[in-house]
Amino acid sequence: MLWVDKHRPRALDKVIVHEEIAQNLKMLVSEQDCPHLLFYGPTGSGRKTLVMALLKQMFGTSAEKVKLENKNWKIDTGTRTIEVELTTLSSTNHVELNPSDAGFQDRYVVQEIIKEMAKSRPIDAKGKKGFKVLVLNEVDKLSREAQHSLRRTMEKYSSSCRLILCCSSSSKVTEAVRSRCLNIRVNAPTNDQIIRVLEFIAKKEKLQLPSTLAARIAVQSNRSLRKAILSFETCKVQNYPFTDDQVVPPMDWEQYVCEIVSDIMKEQSPKRLFLVRGKLYELLINCIPPGFILKNLLSELLKKLDDELKHEVCHWAAHYEHRMQLGQKAIFHLEAFVAKFMSIYKEFLIATFG
């Protein structure tokens, strides 16, 4: 088991990074009920850990007895019947899913599937908590229509269902949904907090962790606790005992992005663009989020550019990031950004060197 899962806090009392939020959540559910919740914050900040600990606080160890299912749902839209396949993680008292995985059919997922789940009370409804919890991930990626349907579901089935919504940016969630939830901001951990977690894991694993190495892992993680723990485990696999000057290796996909940037800088042509497209596809099919790919592409490209080009490249990166959020096929917008960059860079080279 990866350390990021092995050493994940299982209870609110065990949370290291967001102790204040954990204690507030503990008081919140002590009344045997809770409102709809919206957790928002950057990836790797600890949202999932808080949600899992909260579920255990509410329902006890039964919340940890989960099963993973791939379900096919047939939904009658009135004019036709569509099939949607979704992966769900469920226990007796809760169901977790990602409705945005259904793409442009997310509206039907919210309208029908979630409605069906929300109708049924849990088996032990005679107890104090006669409601089921639906955990919905990446709600900021849902279409407007899906979010409007979600609002109606929250209102109609509030007696038998509580929603826990998770997202990176609350600004992309409609005001109607946000206003019906208790909003909880989960900040990215500071470097000092990340170092504390790394030292905690090192103690559990009976490892000697040099403070300088812990500090470099924290800095390189860019305030992502998940990334820091994964990097720490990679360092252990590559070389132990640790040394003060040990190199912290980048993630495999980050290294691959660096290779793509090298390809782009070496040649700007349709043939090279076709090659880069294939590599971008490789990242996408390995489940690397397109936003991460674009952000890292931009970061690596900026390291190789003169100051006069940086502003224009950042402008176009923001342009295609916005279009990517509105569209369905991320590869189109990633490739368009690369093509635009090649055009800008080639013009710059011609103007500079003739």
Rank of each mutant, 00 (worst) to 15 (best):
E347L: 13
E64N: 13
L334G: 02
L309S: 07
E85T: 14
F348L: 13
L283N: 01
L68C: 07
G41M: 01
L165I: 06
T79M: 13
N70T: 02
N222K: 08
T88S: 02
I184Q: 00
K74V: 11
L55G: 03
M58T: 00
I344E: 03
I113D: 03
I195V: 06
N72P: 15
D76E: 09
I229S: 00
E145P: 09
V197Q: 01
Q111A: 09
D306C: 11
V248L: 07
G327S: 11
G278N: 05
D5K: 13
Q105L: 15
K266V: 15
N222R: 11
E282R: 14
Q246V: 08
I82L: 12
S211Y: 12
I217C: 02
I229E: 04
A11T: 14
I16H: 12
S159G: 11
V66W: 03
N222C: 09
C235P: 08
N93C: 07
K303S: 14
S91M: 09
L213N: 01
A125H: 11
V15C: 04
K128D: 10
T87D: 08
M265E: 09
T81I: 12
I293Q: 03
H36V: 07
M251N: 15
H319R: 14
D13C: 06
K74F: 14
S211N: 12
K227W: 05
E282L: 15
Q220Y: 06
L225Y: 02
I331M: 05
A53M: 01
N93E: 07
K236R: 12
M58D: 02
L89A: 11
N137Y: 00
V29G: 07
